[in-house]
Simulated assay, not measured.
Amino acid sequence: MRLLSALLALPLLLVLSPVAPAGAAPDPRWEFFTSDRTRYTSPWFAGSHRIMIPFGCTRAPYYSPDSRCRDGRGFHHGLDLAMPCGTRLFARTRLRVVDNGSLGPAYGANPLLLRSRSKGFDVVIGHTRRVHVKRGDVVRRGQLIARASDDGAPDGCHLHFERRAVGGGLSTAVGPRELLALAPRR
């Protein structure tokens, strides 16, 4: 009887769990602070993945209360997408790799800071590993630049994306959805 119950529950568990790409198990540390269960694709990364923490006011406990938010919520300056460690990350457009020294430890040991002066923005990508580019490199569209990691991330493997003004700090961050060209998986 227990075996039959377990087999009947399996399809429900598969639908409700954050599905990882073929061959990769979901990270048991993933915690989602959004009701959005959509899996998104993007030219920036391999596979399709769920948003863990959206841009803006959030109930995620990692952020100090912010005056822009109600109920003592914190403000998340980027977008976190849950993905297995090792997921490939690609450049979506031509960008220059710049010094990441202005980024703190919350982004992990190897964050990427990419710049497009002509388009007027910087891209911060946190929680990367096996970074395949170095400061001064100009990356091309579609070029493999890094892989997802859990470095500096208490909630498992994911990538953090921010869009900022050129040379700007957190106060210049804007929602990165358009930059990421997120599309629901079909």
Rank of each mutant, 00 (worst) to 15 (best):
L170Y: 13
H49T: 01
M83F: 01
V123R: 06
M83V: 02
S5R: 14
G126M: 02
L182Y: 06
D27E: 07
G169M: 04
T38W: 02
L89A: 15
D99I: 03
T58L: 05
K134H: 13
G47L: 01
F45W: 10
R185A: 12
I145Y: 08
L79G: 12
R37L: 09
R164A: 11
H127R: 08
A6Y: 04
G167S: 10
I145S: 14
H127Q: 08
G152M: 01
S67C: 01
S17C: 10
A25M: 11
G56H: 05
M83S: 08
A173K: 07
T93S: 13
R177F: 06
S67L: 09
L79D: 11
G152P: 07
A24I: 00
G56P: 05
A20K: 02
G156I: 01
A148R: 01
S35T: 14
V138E: 13
L179K: 09
H160C: 09
V174A: 15
V166S: 14
C57S: 08
G104E: 06
A148M: 02
P43L: 01
R92K: 13
G136E: 05
R2N: 11
L10F: 14
G156T: 07
F161N: 10
N100I: 02
D155A: 15
S42Y: 03
L159V: 15
A20E: 03
R73A: 04
A60D: 12
H127S: 12
A46R: 02
R88K: 14
S116A: 14
E31C: 00
K134R: 15
G72N: 09
V131N: 04
I145H: 13
S149Y: 02
G120Y: 00
R37W: 06
S64W: 06
G152C: 05
L81N: 08
R92W: 07
Y40C: 12
P54I: 04
G152I: 03
R29N: 11
A60K: 03
G47Y: 00
P65M: 06
T128L: 03
L13M: 14
A6T: 04
M83C: 05
G78D: 05
P184A: 14
P84S: 12
V131Y: 00
C157R: 01
C157A: 15
I53D: 14
L182C: 10
P111R: 07
P105F: 04
K119I: 12
A6S: 08
R163I: 04
L103D: 12
P18S: 10
H127M: 04
D27M: 03
D150I: 00
R130E: 05
L3W: 11
L16C: 10
V139L: 04
L95E: 09
I53F: 02
L159S: 15
T38G: 09
R185Y: 04
L16M: 11
S17V: 06
M1D: 11
R140N: 15
F161T: 11
R59H: 06
F121D: 12
V124G: 13
A106T: 14
A148K: 02
P18N: 08
L16Y: 06
L179S: 09
A165S: 15
G142F: 00
D122F: 03
S5L: 13
L179H: 10
G167F: 09
L182M: 07
T87G: 09
R164D: 15
L180G: 12
L3N: 13
S149Q: 10
T87M: 04
